[in-house]
Design a protein around this nucleic acid. Sequence first.
DNA 1: CTTGTTTCCGAAAGCGCTTTCGGAATAGCC
DNA 2: GGCTATTCCGAAAGCGCTTTCGGAAACAAG
Lengths: 354, 354
Amino acid sequence: MARVSLKDLAQHLGLAEGTVSRAMNNYPDISAATREKVQKAADALGYKPNHTARRLATGRAEAVAYLMPTSRSALSTPFVSELLQGLGDALAKRAWDLLVVQPQSAEDELQTLRKLVASGKVSGVVLSRPAKVDARIDFLKSSGFPFIVHGRAKDDAGYAWYDVDGRQAFADAVDHLTAQGHRRIGFVGAPSYQNFAQDRFDGYKDGLKANGLAFDPDFVSIAELTDEGGERAAFDLLSSPPHPTALLCVNDVQAIGALAAVRAKGWVPGKDVSVIGYDGVWMGRHTNPPLTTLAQPQSHSGRQLGDMLLSIIDGGKPEDFQVLRRAELVRRKSDGPPTGIRTTPQTTSREETR
Amino acid sequence: MARVSLKDLAQHLGLAEGTVSRAMNNYPDISAATREKVQKAADALGYKPNHTARRLATGRAEAVAYLMPTSRSALSTPFVSELLQGLGDALAKRAWDLLVVQPQSAEDELQTLRKLVASGKVSGVVLSRPAKVDARIDFLKSSGFPFIVHGRAKDDAGYAWYDVDGRQAFADAVDHLTAQGHRRIGFVGAPSYQNFAQDRFDGYKDGLKANGLAFDPDFVSIAELTDEGGERAAFDLLSSPPHPTALLCVNDVQAIGALAAVRAKGWVPGKDVSVIGYDGVWMGRHTNPPLTTLAQPQSHSGRQLGDMLLSIIDGGKPEDFQVLRRAELVRRKSDGPPTGIRTTPQTTSREETR
DNA sequence: CTTGTTTCCGAAAGCGCTTTCGGAATAGCC
DNA sequence: GGCTATTCCGAAAGCGCTTTCGGAAACAAG
């Protein structure tokens, strides 16, 4: 019942502690015979090594931490556990531990990180949702501590990251919409200190330019990353004529709010006003109408992040681990060609020229 | 730059290691003067205690583990991160760590747990989604290791848990439906080895009995906990006349699938067939139509679980920490009085008598 | 049979911190 | 001023494991 220690095991076998330890760790200077004897005795007695002691002795933490996002935005929830599962899988191969670290506030974040790397509790950390310029990344880079980020900051050089190309995706979306005949395309976005928000916004502008449409600041509205946020922003955009005939939303949860806004205006989403989201969340299939979206690739990102981080801890160069994936447009029912609806007919300066 | 250890600090101060240690830990036998001196020097030199060494020396792990559910059912995702956040908050007060442990398979679970408690890595664990009879709980109970479970097994005695009363909730839902005039109420459920599924099913039956309705096995269909599962199950139920005029679904994601099934039959959910879910997920407001559901109380369950677990680790009796919350019916648009629709008119034995 | 190699294991010396124990120094008391 | 109480700190002795180092035993070579 009581924990059996290495000493107990050694005593039981009549061997020295060190010998038993080396046997358990497959040192080459242990004869096959005794190694086997040790193994057998070990699981006969139910010996389970004390990880803490091992860590102290080796100096290897054999654990990595995931720094939880501090923003409580509804959206963080689905992707966090997805990521955690993947990380867990990756770490399981080596029987490493996964720590979840939760800063108590956004300001607290850097301090938490400092303590974390200093404590020696982990040998690597994974960050997510970087800001455009992210102090956490700067600190980690300068400290030389192994880390990887899910997403990337504006400056994406010199560290490891995994991201999907939101900029490209939004440019694609504009292409798609203009191909359908839309000329007034709105953007409902999130505060751009979050780098992904900036990326997608840039993609939106790229798309306009590529299609010869003028950028009109009146067609963009920024809100928080919730359904209500999206709804409010969309409602605003739709309230001053000439309103956009299509809305690109920075993510699906905002898009879902936007759908509600369109209906609130008495219009039907997908007919009168097109709405396109981003993420490809499961729920999109069940909205009213089903949401057209830019879906992230299904590949378990957590798994990849974990594997990459492990490689870096093993000595890999962070710069060698930067992967950019492409989002895919999945068409459902919330987009379509623009229809001539209750919109002010006169062409204002907001209309693109050409 | 290099880590500064206790020894360094002591040397720098001209004090003994032990003295410095006691000063840092607020031992009463250290004079206020030196305590202060030590504190100052500590953060001047940037001393951060090595947690691993501390753990080894004290034998206290100062960490708890969350055992991830192995089922990949879509639903696990939202609630996992919610729970993690709450746990993190609770642990932050003591600066304890949160480990996320992920068994590689369901069979592996018990073994993982064994290793976990033996390794000394944590001083408590939290489980979720217990089975009707759950080997993990039995093991933990017999081992005397501190733990708490989110939900509860069929046998809920002798350990700590936090649960919301699904049985009561489903009985309430049946009341609600019969009050509206429904007589044929279906149940789409999940495999009942999951205790919560059994609970809710029992509540459904309780409700029928309380309202003088006969239980009809043809009105229940079991499927996996996904939208497709719910859709298939609901479709089946609606395909053999006389079909139920209302569907109680074991959770919201199934209910969302059920909504789709109703539409697929050419009916309109909430009018021709009522459907009610369970959980109160955020998404329910945006389905078509918005989903009536039995919402779990908003109180951060993770936080509560954490606090309770801490109390138990401190020596509290597990039996003293059992909290049962009540779900609340939030009415949206997916339920209403039954309408006489394309249903076979003749009263079969399936109709309740009275 | 000596010398030189290998093979295998025992014996320490930590890893960085905590905690008990005892004793020096100071204070309190008659 | 002697004596007992306090106050405060130093000095080990670990916690359970790893890892280096050296040497005994076994083997090979001359």
